[in-house]
Design a binder for these strands. Structure first.
Lengths: 345, 345
DNA sequence: TTGCCGTCCGTAAACGTTTACGGAACTATG
DNA sequence: CATAGTTCCGTAAACGTTTACGGACGGCAA
């Protein structure tokens, strides 16, 4: 005899009463409820997840889909950990559990979604590493599975999404550098075709154009989003006939490699070239400190959770005005890496 | 009508046959099997996870329990992503899916384990952030849930574990530094009471003793396992009346902050002080490159998976000689941060 | 007393699968 | 033709819960 039956047998009451007692339903004597709860801890009873969710049609689990293997996401080393923390702060209020659905780098994310998620594994989903064209979005929308994406996509099924404000960052960075006299400004973009690359490059181009400047193709650097990628960018940049006087780094960890390659060439950020990047815990500990754009990842996680819940009928009442589509602003943290002023001729 | 019934109705055959056809059971005509599979994709049928696992008593899911929030484990996203990659390489062969069970930093890991895992959520578990005394181990052992821990614990229920060879690292690092003439050698340990701190400190002490040297208490530095922690260590170290001539860093990211604080004081690793640390993707990109201990995290992940599977009756046949308890060796990567030789008086 | 209401509890169905069992139809063998 | 064996399929039970429904019981008012 196992499960709730064992508990019922042990107390000599029916399983219905046991279930009601455990779940805080009203139709049960407080005295018996106490006995049930006591027996549950005594016998170490824990309700079976499959049985419960089969009956209820709900799992109380939210999945955060992400890809494993390194060199994929280009987020800093603690990026996801911080976001998770915020997401969970919200979910905890509703007894929802967050699990990370780890899609192997060997498997197509679309296959993975069909295989794992569509089986009713989770009540809702958060999608990361959103692609420019992302079939996952259509798939989930068709099946009415609540979800929110971290990152915009061209695929539009009316889904909620949140994203970092790369446009604001592009605009502010370009304006700032131009104001300091820079005319030849390089930018970076991810090595793959994530949407953010297009967004960022496009906005940089327009921001430059507003100042009467052109974004030159050979000043757009692609790289893997890690230290080695940043190192390579700096090498390529320094090898140019006429190197740029400033650069905006779109990824977080590439700054470390970028700094190193410069250092080896005797070039110093802030003195010989202006560098603006993205915040990461190491940004303050570079020499000189990196001028960068920062946001609260925990707050972003909170917003993600609230947006998702507002798309779930069971919870939407609690979040009437959660954002549906929103770019998340980043604030400029002044370092010294961009204090280089272009000498006026 | 939903699920397998719908499929059966659509094909005008029984649900039993549909199930057998989908699961590759022998007692089914090849012709009907084809029709079933075709109809399944046509109708977008995906078997329900709860129903299946309720009946089978198995979920085909393996959980990797970890804690969210930063500044906890000292391991970042890239650490786990690399390990996951290896784990999944093995699991894929057995149609097992890996999910990360994210325990909020707000919640006690033991409560979390009871709440989520004990409900039959996963067929097996990998525990990280193992504590020196870890009730989770007893809990799982009592319930006969297969698991393996990443990290040793004093709690011994005969469970399998894998761990990094911190003892080998301690021994090699100390020997190396002593051979280079160092007598005052500092070491670091995590801020909390994870077992690795005890193991590492203890072995360093014994390694020093073998050379007739003592490990002085004020040369053992505790810190949070991030850049800020490393920064603080360097500041404290330089403030000593008689600073050490060498240091061994046990965490990965603390090297960045450590370097920075030294740099601000005009102290250069490799020239004024010898530094040995742990490998991380940024280790090569520090100036000078960090001499550090490295291991293949992907291989570690593979070993973790194999060890877990060998503890699961359904799979143990495939892995007769997977390691049960094993420390995973690290190799020394020579940089220039420890090339400082103590001048002989 | 009768009737009604409220409290508490037991019964049984339902969720979506898998699988043991048995049987129908057909083939092969004597 | 009778029998045995093979191939394929349908039936129904089972997994562990939750919950709608109804009933037993006691208290209270009329």
């Amino acid at each position: 005899m196992k499960g709730i039956r064992r508990l019922a047998q042990h107390l000599d009451i029916s399983i219905g009463t046991v279930s009601r007692a455990l779940n805080g339903k009203p139709d049960v004597n407080e005295e018996t409820r106490k006995r049930v709860l006591q027996a549950a801890t005594d016998l170490g009873y824990v309700p079976n997840q499959s049985g419960r969710s089969l009956r209820q049609g709900t799992t109380n689990i939210i999945g955060f889909m992400m890809q494993t293997g390194t060199e994929i996401t280009g987020q800093g080393d603690t990026f996801f950990m911080s976001v998770f923390d915020g997401v969970q702060a919200v979910f905890a209020r509703h007894k929802l559990d967050l699990v990370a659905l780890l899609c192997s780098s060997q498997e197509d994310p679309n296959d993975y979604l069909r295989r794992v998620v569509a089986r009713g594994f989770a009540d809702g989903l958060i999608l990361s590493a959103t692609q420019r064209d992302d079939p996952r979005i259509e798939f989930l929308a068709e099946r009415n599975i609540p979800f929110v994406t971290l990152g915009r996509s061209l695929t539009d099924a009316g889904q909620p999404w949140l994203d970092l404000d790369f446009e604001g960052m592009a605009q502010a960075a370009i304006d700032r550098l131009v104001a300091r006299g820079h005319r030849r400004i390089a930018i970076t973009r991810p090595h793959d075709d994530t949407n953010l690359g297009y967004i960022f490059v496009d906005r940089c181009r327009r921001a430059l154009a507003a100042h009467g400047l052109a974004l030159e193709e050979d000043l757009i650097f692609r790289s893997t989003p890690n230290e080695a990628g940043g190192y390579q960018i700096a090498r390529d940049l320094l090898a140019l006939e006429e190197p740029p006087t400033a650069i905006v780094l779109i990824n977080e960890t590439i700054a470390i490699g970028f700094y190193q390659a410069l250092s080896e060439a005797g070039v110093k950020p802030g003195r010989d070239i202006a560098v603006i990047g993205r915040y990461s815990p190491h940004a303050h500990f570079l020499s000189p400190p990196l001028t960068c754009f920062r946001l609260s990842l925990r707050d972003l996680g909170i917003a993600l959770a609230e947006t998702l819940l507002s798309a779930m009928p069971a919870f939407s009442d609690h979040y009437p005005d959660a954002p549906v589509n929103r770019v998340w602003p980043m604030e400029l943290v002044e370092g010294e890496s961009d204090s280089f002023l272009v000498p006026q001729r």
